[in-house]
Amino acid sequence: MSIQHFRVALIPFFAAFCLPVFAHPETLVKVKDAEDQLGARVGYIELDLNSGKILESFRPEERFPMMSTFKVLLCGAVLSRVDAGQEQLGRRIHYSQNDLVKYSPVTEKHLTDGMTVRELCSAAITMSDNTAANLLLTTIGGPKELTAFLHNMGDHVTRLDRWEPELNEAIPNDERDTTMPAAMATTLRKLLTGELLTLASRQQLIDWMEADKVAGPLLRSALPAGWFIADKSGASERGSRGIIAALGPDGKPSRIVVIYTTGSQATMDERNRQIAEIGASLIKHW
């Protein structure tokens, strides 16, 4: 058993032996400061991975655009179909130039040979490839079927209504393609630790998130040596930015963190910096 498999397999085991986890309101002070700095709403939640207890939250039940963070949920739905014998990670999917949409750094290189379902999930999560996400959405029946999958998990909040890139429109008060921090954190925890997916599929999902290559300026920039993080970021119109993550010290995840912001006029660099500073406060007061 690899170190990674050891880590995921023991998450339920550690729940019975973990020390009490204490919240630190200092992080919420930073979240509120980020709102002031960005001139935008910020949603935040910090969840204990083992118990599911909410440690801190700010606007946990307000809607925010999901942006590309939905791609983790999408690959969770794909893995659920794999577990049920309805899909194979090794199945190759062929597509054409007409299928390519904006920001497809991986799929645009494989027009001649296509990509496997496994490769598409990797591209969608680690590189946020939009065509990969659309191709995967097609395999499960489209955005409405992803919403149905989430409903069956008990998440009646999170919804996907459109495809890439239209889902990134982020119109104020538009509930399409949105979630709430509390709903996203709970759903992510179920995917990573619950019985919905097999152990192998849970491991695969967290491996893809751990290999994320496009979230460096966010929480990863504040991470001390030896800490673990598996994450997925997102960005969209109207100053929207977000990240969902499982992270913790000693090389294993122990908390879920979800951060969303929307409605800012700030630059992408400034949005990144504010999220990184929230992460730094979280780690300092861990």
Score class of each variant (00 low, 15 high):
Cys75Trp: 07
Phe228Ile: 05
Val257Glu: 00
Phe17Ser: 11
Thr126Asp: 10
Arg255Gln: 00
Asp269His: 15
Glu169Asn: 11
Glu56Asp: 09
Ile125Val: 12
Arg81Cys: 05
Ala280Glu: 15
Gly239Ala: 05
Arg41Phe: 06
Arg41Ala: 08
Ile3Met: 13
Met115Thr: 02
Asp99Gly: 06
Gly39Val: 09
Thr179Asp: 00
Ile171Leu: 13
Ser201Leu: 05
Leu111Arg: 06
Phe149Gly: 02
Arg92Gly: 05
Ala245Ile: 03
Gly234Cys: 00
Phe22Val: 12
Arg241Cys: 02
Tyr44Gly: 01
Ile93Met: 14
Lys213Gly: 09
Thr179Lys: 00
Arg63Ala: 03
Ile3Gly: 09
Leu219Asn: 03
Pro253Tyr: 07
Asp83Asn: 04
Ala183Val: 10
Phe6Gly: 08
Ala225Gly: 11
Asp99Thr: 11
Leu111His: 10
Asp113Ala: 11
Thr139Pro: 03
Thr186Asp: 13
Gly142Arg: 00
Ala183Pro: 05
Pro181Lys: 00
Met127Arg: 10
Ser122Gly: 13
Leu136Cys: 03
Leu10Asp: 04
Lys252Leu: 09
Arg176Val: 05
Thr138Gln: 14
Val214Met: 14
Arg81Ile: 05
Gly242Ala: 10
His24Asp: 08
Asp99His: 11
Pro165Ile: 06
Gly52Ser: 05
Asp212Leu: 00
Ser254Asp: 15
Gln86Arg: 15
Leu137Glu: 02
Met153Lys: 06
Ala148Asp: 10
Val214Ser: 08
Ser68Gly: 03
Pro224Gln: 04
Asp177Pro: 00
Gly248Glu: 01
Gln88Glu: 14
Ser201Pro: 14
Ala266Leu: 08
Asp48Gly: 05
Leu10Gln: 07
Ser221Lys: 15
Ser96His: 14
Phe6Val: 12
Gln86Ala: 10
Glu108Asn: 11
Tyr95Val: 07
Ile259Thr: 02
Leu100Met: 09
Arg41Tyr: 06
Asp269Met: 10
Gly194Ser: 13
Gly43Lys: 00
Glu277Asp: 09
Ala185Gly: 11
Glu145Ala: 13
Arg41Gly: 03
Ser281Glu: 13
Ile206Leu: 15
His94Glu: 10
Thr138Gly: 15
Met67Lys: 00
Phe58Gly: 00
Thr267Val: 08
Leu135Thr: 05
Asp83Leu: 00
Ile243Tyr: 06
Arg220Thr: 02
Gly52Gln: 04
Arg63Val: 05
Ile171Arg: 14
Lys252Gly: 08
Gly194Cys: 12
Trp163Ser: 06
Glu169His: 08
Ala84Pro: 01
Met127Ile: 09
Val78Ala: 03
Ile140Phe: 08
Ser201Ala: 10
His285Gly: 06
Asp83Gln: 08
Asp231Ile: 03
Glu166Pro: 02
Gly76Val: 01
Ile11Gly: 10
Leu55Ala: 04
His285Tyr: 13
Ser122Thr: 11
Leu38Pro: 07
Asn98Glu: 14
Leu218Gly: 03
Arg176Cys: 07
Gly279Val: 07
Gly226Asp: 09
Val82Trp: 07
Ser201Val: 05
Thr147Asp: 04
Arg238Ile: 12
Arg41Cys: 05
Thr267Pro: 13
Leu28Gln: 06
Glu175Asn: 11
Gly226Leu: 03
Gln37His: 13
His285Ala: 06
Leu137Thr: 04
Ser51Gly: 06
Ala280Thr: 15
Leu282Gly: 02
Arg7Asp: 10
Ser68Pro: 00
Ser221Tyr: 09
Val117Asp: 07
Lys30Ile: 08
Gln4His: 12
Glu87Thr: 05
Ala246Val: 14
Ala16Pro: 10
Leu111Trp: 11
Ser96Trp: 08
Ala34Gly: 05
Lys144Ala: 14
Ile3Ala: 09
Arg92Leu: 12
Ala215Ser: 15
Glu61Ser: 13
Leu205Phe: 13
Ala245Lys: 03
Leu38Gly: 07
Ser281Leu: 10
Ser254Phe: 07
